[in-house]
């Protein structure tokens, strides 16, 4: 079943074309990796999908509903969760409170003024933390969390809105290799379990080729290749510009 349809998505900043007629579809249960050299337009793509930027042209529909021109808030409500490259959890709150805030937002209770936050969705928040494996830091302020734990909290935060589509911007950046694999395996399990679709930007090729169902390669804002890991691995063009067959290339 097709969840997300992107057609002719374009965005330019002045003279530079950041995203150039990008189009793809995504089905529920699918894990799509978005790769490409720095400046290829990956994060811009995400910003266009979740409404932080408005595309110059193109269509984006989530289960037939157009997302173009909607605010990030509205798009989140329609079921698009996002994690950020630099973890952006609410630093002054504990991991548990972070989740409670998101749950309150999800249930449209953020404007309650009397009952203490402590009593709202605490069990749900804990369950989510437990699901991503960081229940033990529930009472720690996010500003003081270890990086790996914070990345998992990020994931839980994105899940708390019950999304159908997850946009994950470098979910494993800055983590130890073993932790990376574990986190992506967890994401993969969640995607299956909840029938979500996930798009993730990733630079670790072991992670990408080990876990993605499909890979899209972006270069200079254009799609260079779109296919299974095996197909992408064998794509000569991709190998030439991206996968670092020439030493000192732009690959990571």
């Amino acid at each position: 079943m097709t969840l997300l349809v992107v057609e002719g998505l374009s965005k330019r900043f002045g003279a530079m074309v950041a995203v150039d007629r990008v189009g793809f579809t995504l089905a529920a249960g699918e894990m799509l990796a978005l790769i490409g050299p720095n400046g290829a337009g990956k994060t811009t793509c995400f910003n266009l999908l979740n409404g932080q930027l408005r595309p110059d042209a193109g269509r984006v529909t989530l289960e037939g509903v157009s997302l173009v021109g909607l605010t990030p808030r509205r798009i989140w409500r329609l079921g698009v969760g996002r994690t950020f490259q630099v973890p952006a959890a609410f630093a002054s709150m504990t991991a548990c409170e972070n989740l409670q805030v998101v749950l309150l937002s999800h249930h449209r209770r953020a404007f309650r003024v009397w009952r203490s936050t402590r009593s709202w969705y605490a069990a749900d928040a804990l369950a989510l933390l437990e699901r991503v494996g960081v229940a033990h830091v529930a009472d720690q302020r996010c500003g003081t969390l270890a990086y790996g734990d914070l990345k998992r909290v990020e994931l839980a935060l994105a899940l708390a809105g019950r999304p159908r589509l997850l946009l994950m911007d470098e979910p494993t950046a800055g983590m130890a290799p073993a932790d990376r694999q574990a986190l992506i395996a967890l994401t993969r399990a969640l995607v299956r379990e909840r029938g979500l679709a996930a798009v993730f930007i990733e630079h670790d090729m072991d992670v990408v080729f080990g876990h993605a169902d499909r890979i899209i390669v972006l270069d200079h804002g254009r799609i260079l290749a779109d296919g299974s890991p095996a197909a992408v691995r064998d794509d000569a063009q991709v190998r030439a510009v991206y996968l670092g067959t020439s030493p000192g290339g732009r690959g990571q």
Partner: peptide, 8 residues
Amino acid sequence: MPTLKKSA
């Protein structure tokens, strides 16, 4: 199971 109680 962590507690929800705040620190002292």
